[in-house]
Design a protein around this nucleic acid. Structure first.
Lengths: 138, 138
DNA sequence: CAGCATCCAATTGGATACTG
DNA sequence: CAGTATCCAATTGGATGCTG
């Protein structure tokens, strides 16, 4: 093994380092809307309105912003049909498709383990409430 | 197939729904620090200071907060040694270990595809700059 | 329909000071 | 060492109104 071989993963990128460009990629992926959008787009092209309905709770602003960022990052292809009223399709690029497994994985892990986590939260909050309070001078 | 069979994944949890508890789990996972912390804790117990050094750019406040949330969610086990000076170890629980693959996967995907994404960003910004500007009345 | 622009409230994040 | 507490700046997010 050569001396620097172990240090480099891929061209030396290391998301642990705040100045490494890969950190910006990780930040782009690691947020709820990107995760849910990649999952939703995993089945094929969807229109703006369709995504808005599927991602319950997202605002028009956040949807537009997240889609733009994903388009800029090369994850999403945006197709505008010059019809009236306008129609815009969004679909994953090859690059985008290569993250489906990870993003959909997070979504389904969340769904599979909700109960376990809710229980853990209750236990934690219960312990915290039972904890001896610092004595106050009476 | 029964009528509700297709609708339920796991007890009916669906992170697409804003009111579903699984959405809160997804939100907890889908952020940069949780992603990097799970990855960092994947190798075994680490002390607070060690994590702070490894996760370049994290503040003490964010580190404490994220670790507390993860502890509350049952992903992390916190062990305090009553020594002077104090020493605190953090390690993943079984539940936490079951997300390592996903979180570390995001980190390494980011590192593997940085260049591709940086190139996509440049192309996008280039196109945007070249776009015909709306005519202004002279 | 699929946006953009704007205003404003709320949450997040950093810097700093102090403690068992 | 491993925090807590606080203040304050910055970013995010929602609500609303308008447009090709």
């Amino acid at each position: 093994m050569d001396t620097i071989g172990d240090l480099r993963d891929f061209g030396g990128a290391d998301a642990y380092l705040s100045q490494c460009a890969s950190r910006t990629v990780l930040v782009a992926l690691a947020n709820k809307w990107t995760c849910l959008l990649v999952s939703a787009l995993g089945d094929g092209p969807v229109r703006f309105g369709g995504l808005r309905r599927q991602l319950d709770g997202i605002t028009q602003k956040s949807l537009t912003q997240t889609l733009r960022t994903m388009e800029r990052d090369g994850l999403v292809l945006r197709t505008v049909y010059p019809t009236i009223p306008p129609r815009v399709d969004y679909e994953l690029t090859d690059l985008g498709r290569s993250v489906i497994a990870l993003m959909a994985g997070i979504k389904s892990w969340s769904e599979q383990h909700v109960e376990e986590i809710l229980a853990a939260r209750e236990r934690f909050d219960q312990r915290a409430a039972e904890e001896p309070q610092p004595v106050l001078p009476t």
